[in-house]
Amino acid sequence: KYLVLALYDYQEKSPREVTMKKGDILTLLNSTNKDWWKVEVNGRQGFVPAAYVKYL
């Protein structure tokens, strides 16, 4: 498993997404889509914009 760092705040806009705050450390679950990565944060799984996170 990889960890990624939230570069920006992101507010979920659909039930498939998750909210994150700048500085959050997220567990990367799937990065096959170049635009949306599946992550786990605070016990929830969902998608965030790939451009908003970077590998640690």
Score class of each variant (00 low, 15 high):
12 E>H: 09
51 A>P: 08
44 R>E: 06
49 P>T: 02
54 K>L: 13
15 P>G: 11
19 T>N: 07
42 N>C: 09
54 K>S: 12
6 A>I: 04
4 V>F: 08
11 Q>L: 13
39 V>F: 00
53 V>H: 00
56 L>F: 13
36 W>Y: 08
16 R>Y: 15
56 L>Y: 13
13 K>P: 04
2 Y>F: 15
31 S>I: 10
33 N>G: 11
20 M>C: 06
55 Y>T: 13
4 V>G: 11
8 Y>V: 13
20 M>V: 11
5 L>D: 02
3 L>W: 12
5 L>Y: 11
41 V>R: 12
15 P>K: 11
54 K>D: 13
51 A>Y: 10
38 K>R: 12
6 A>F: 03
13 K>Q: 14
18 V>F: 09
11 Q>S: 12
54 K>W: 09
36 W>H: 03
18 V>P: 01
45 Q>F: 08
16 R>N: 15
30 N>R: 06
53 V>K: 00
24 D>K: 03
49 P>H: 02
31 S>C: 13
55 Y>N: 10
13 K>S: 10
23 G>A: 03
22 K>T: 08
14 S>H: 11
2 Y>S: 13
12 E>T: 08
52 Y>E: 03
32 T>R: 11
50 A>F: 02
37 W>H: 03
35 D>L: 13
44 R>S: 07
12 E>P: 15
1 K>G: 12
30 N>A: 10
20 M>H: 01
21 K>G: 06
55 Y>W: 12
50 A>N: 03
3 L>C: 10
24 D>I: 04
24 D>M: 11
11 Q>R: 09
52 Y>K: 09
49 P>W: 03
19 T>K: 04
5 L>N: 03
47 F>H: 05
4 V>I: 09
44 R>L: 08
45 Q>G: 06
21 K>P: 00
24 D>V: 04
5 L>W: 06
53 V>S: 00
6 A>C: 11
23 G>C: 07
56 L>C: 11
5 L>P: 00
36 W>K: 02
15 P>Y: 09
35 D>Q: 12
13 K>A: 13
31 S>V: 10
24 D>Y: 04
23 G>S: 04
26 L>V: 08
40 E>K: 07
3 L>Q: 12
13 K>E: 09
42 N>M: 09
38 K>T: 07
26 L>F: 06
49 P>N: 03
20 M>S: 01
54 K>Q: 15
21 K>R: 12
20 M>I: 15
39 V>N: 01
56 L>H: 09
41 V>W: 06
53 V>T: 04
27 T>P: 14
45 Q>D: 07
35 D>Y: 14
35 D>G: 09
32 T>Q: 13
2 Y>I: 15
36 W>C: 07
46 G>S: 01
14 S>A: 09
2 Y>V: 15
55 Y>D: 11
44 R>F: 07
54 K>V: 15
51 A>H: 12
43 G>H: 07
26 L>R: 00
30 N>T: 08
5 L>T: 10
5 L>R: 09
24 D>T: 06
41 V>Y: 10
26 L>T: 01
5 L>H: 06
39 V>G: 00
19 T>D: 04
2 Y>L: 14
45 Q>S: 12
8 Y>C: 12
12 E>A: 15
56 L>N: 05
40 E>P: 01
21 K>Y: 09
37 W>V: 10
28 L>P: 01
7 L>P: 00
47 F>D: 04
33 N>S: 11
27 T>R: 13
29 L>G: 01
47 F>M: 09
